[in-house]
């Protein structure tokens, strides 16, 4: 896999984005990280088939999706993505503060590839992200 394929984080909170970047850096994650604050912009990009320059003109290798977003929320994004004719082959992992069982099951039923509940402690968050990157970048094969 191209090392310059970006990891896309859809997250409206600046603080949360900062902490996630910090944690990924801590575990030595090397892919470029790009951010979107609204689902709508991502959906438009994916629909148009164009990839912007700051994505290195490449589709993201993985998407970390927050659920609680203004306007279109994460669940609606997953739902809308499913009705696209040829959805991009990108796994989407939900990363949310919500531990509501209905959010978890709805996410999976809408095609989420995983659900990570953000813990309170930074250490646990780092641990969880370590497992997540191990799994997606060492254990499984992602599409080119």
């Amino acid at each position: 896999m191209k090392k310059n394929r970006p990891l896309l984080i859809i997250e409206d909170s600046d603080e949360d984005f900062e902490v996630t970047c910090w944690a990924l850096n801590k575990i030595g994650f090397t892919h470029p990280i790009v951010r979107a604050t609204h689902c709508e912009e991502v959906l438009l990009l994916l629909l148009s088939g164009t990839t912007p320059a700051d994505w290195n003109n490449l589709l993201p290798c993985l998407v970390l999706l927050d659920l609680n977003l203004p306007r279109m929320n994460g669940l609606q994004f997953l739902r809308d993505l499913r009705v696209i004719k040829s959805p991009p082959a990108i796994p989407i992992v939900v990363v949310s503060t919500s531990n509501n069982p209905s959010d978890v099951s709805t996410s999976y039923s809408l095609g989420a590839a995983g659900y990570l509940c953000k813990p309170l402690s930074l250490d646990s968050y780092v641990e969880k992200l370590r497992y997540l990157t191990h799994y997606w970048f060492d254990a499984v094969t992602l599409p080119e």
Partner: peptide
């Protein structure tokens, strides 16, 4: 409520840890 209150709380926690 728990979700929306937890979000800033987690932020506080995380930044204090940092």
């Amino acid at each position: 409520v728990s979700h929306d209150l937890k979000e800033p709380l987690r932020g506080i926690h995380n930044f204090a840890e940092l």
